[in-house]
Design a protein around this nucleic acid. Sequence first.
DNA 1: AAGGGGCACAACCGCTGTTAG
DNA 2: CCTAACAGCGGTTGTGCCCCT
Length: 297
Amino acid sequence: MDVDDGNCPQMMNDDQEDEMEMEELRRGPWTVEEDLILINYISLHGEGRWNSLAHLAGLKRTGKSCRLRWLNYLRPDVRRGNITLEEQLLILELHSRWGNRWSKIAQYLPGRTDNEIKNYWRTQVQKHAKQLKCDVNSKQFKDAMQYLWMPRLVERIQATSATSGPTAVASPGCSTSTITTTTGGGCDNNLEPLGSSSNWVPENPGTRASCPISELTDYYRLPVTEAQDPAGRFCSGQGSSYQFEQSLAAPPEGYYSNYGLDLQPMDQSNNYQYMDGGGTSGNFWNVEDIWYTNHKI
DNA sequence: AAGGGGCACAACCGCTGTTAG
DNA sequence: CCTAACAGCGGTTGTGCCCCT
């Protein structure tokens, strides 16, 4: 139930009219004044009981609207700005496990909201799926994401960290990992965002989990020791029945690679176009990739 | 300079699970 | 145990901005 029905008076006096007016709910963009009211109220009384909060604060908004505004925008720990390469990689990885479980994914991206991640997915990922002329949920696209997109992100992250030092989102205390990975979106995950034994989880409950991005990047850049596919792109075992599962700390020999791609990620003169560093739009796939994806996967 | 298209993001909607009375 | 209210989630839409033609 989103909106209070309010009264339906047959005859109204002035007080009742005022009351009716009070019950009129505002919609649409929040004003600065409304933001301030909400911030001040929450700073004094805390979160919770959103419907009564909205009423007591004098906001002509639904509780849901207040909650959403607070969680997605006004909350002090909300990070704003471009999705970093590391965050992109983590989103892809986690989405391959959990699908559209945005809130769950958001728990691993400190300061990012489910709404933001959802928007990123819709604009960026679905755009690439469209470029490849396949559905985001298709195995074709998932494979392309896993074997083309994610490795390239890793390449870029590695290149970036090599030139500019540690990245903003670190992975403290992640010497080993319990993460397992399965292709094609299937997932037996050992990850729990808060309060589990996973190394992804911060020491102090109540804070958001830091993400083991450095481990992910290590994972995706392991040397190839054996057969890639004829095109030199995928590791052995690639195919409809191909599955792998291993620890991040001890990946299987020959798993990955730069996937055999002749990557020159930082060379601005080459023909590859990557997601740009700021996480904004860009033509990620090159013609060869699209051809390959459509014919081989 | 103007218009159109695409993109990013904020906000709403509807459904479901949870909780309190 | 039942029911209504609430909280949370995922899907969808609306809107403003930017870029290209």
